[in-house]
Structure formats: structure tokens, C-alpha cells
Design a protein around this nucleic acid. Sequence first.
DNA 1: ATGTGACTTGTAGTCCGTA
DNA 2: ATACGGACTACAAGTCACA
Lengths: 76, 76
Amino acid sequence: MNTKNHNLVQLGEQLRRKRIQVGISQEQLALKAEIDRSYYGGIERGERNLTFLTLVKIASVLNCDISSLTKNIPHE
Amino acid sequence: MNTKNHNLVQLGEQLRRKRIQVGISQEQLALKAEIDRSYYGGIERGERNLTFLTLVKIASVLNCDISSLTKNIPHE
DNA sequence: ATGTGACTTGTAGTCCGTA
DNA sequence: ATACGGACTACAAGTCACA
């Protein structure tokens, strides 16, 4: 079984929550953020250790700052 | 001339501010975060596009959450 | 104590599929 | 629309010598 990193899972959950709130699909978000659709799916599942600039792109599309996506991260 | 990304520069500035506040050197921080001293230096200068988990390590040493380091990022 | 260039290795990120 | 895999390519991770 794949032991995912807790911080990445937490981030992924925040992203999914925010994306649904905004009301767009993974596909649409990925297109706007100019990242791969299947790669973005992996991020929401907490399977990908994305870079800061990729996170910036995603936050831009979600129209929020990274700060609002990372409350309590890291969580000891 | 190297055109650095504004968001990375902003993050680097926040990190440096916080580190000085805490009162430790780049060297000490890097040691605790288990990353290379010169690599960390590049992060503060906004020259490195670090991954989320690297940022998590740094935030842990600074004893703060990523949220507090990323206010107004991205900044349109 | 920090900045920088040059480098190798590992993985972020893409692109093609299948279900 | 999303999950997941394989095979790739681009670039972050990590190290070092020297200013």
C-alpha cells in the first residue's frame, strides 16, 4: 500500500474542497493552470509532491492565495 | 541577467524575515531541516523553485505553518 | 556566515493510453 | 468526469569548491 505523505494529503483535500466550491472540474482547472489533467488528479489525491510555482498556478485559477490552502500545514 | 520569479522572491523574503526573527543562521536552519546550506541560500534569494515537502521541512524548523509564509502569494 | 557556478541524480511534470 | 499506469523529458534535489 502506498504510504502517502500526510501534508500532501491535507493540501490535496484543501484543493479539492476549494475547486468544488468554485464549481469547476479537475479537467477545466488543469487546462486553465496549464498543467496536465491526470497530474492534477494525483495532486488532489496527495500522491504528488508539487513545486511551489505549480501551486501558485493552481491558486491563481482558484483565485485564492496559498495561505488559505495551507492552514495547519505542517501539522506535527 | 537572471529573471527571477516574483512569487519565489516573495517567498524567499518571507523565509529570511522569519529566520532572522527566530535568530538562526542559514547554516543552522539548513542543518535542522536536513537540506544543503547553499541550496537553502538559493531559496531565500528566490532562485530555487522548491517542492512542497521541502517547504514543509523549512516551516517545521521555523516553527510556523506555510500559511503564515505565503500571505498574498500569488500576487497578481 | 553567505553567494555563486558547475555539476549528477532523482523526481516533477507531460503525454499517451485503459477503465 | 476521474483514477491509474507506462514511457518519456524537464527541471528540482542535492553536493562541492571557491569567492
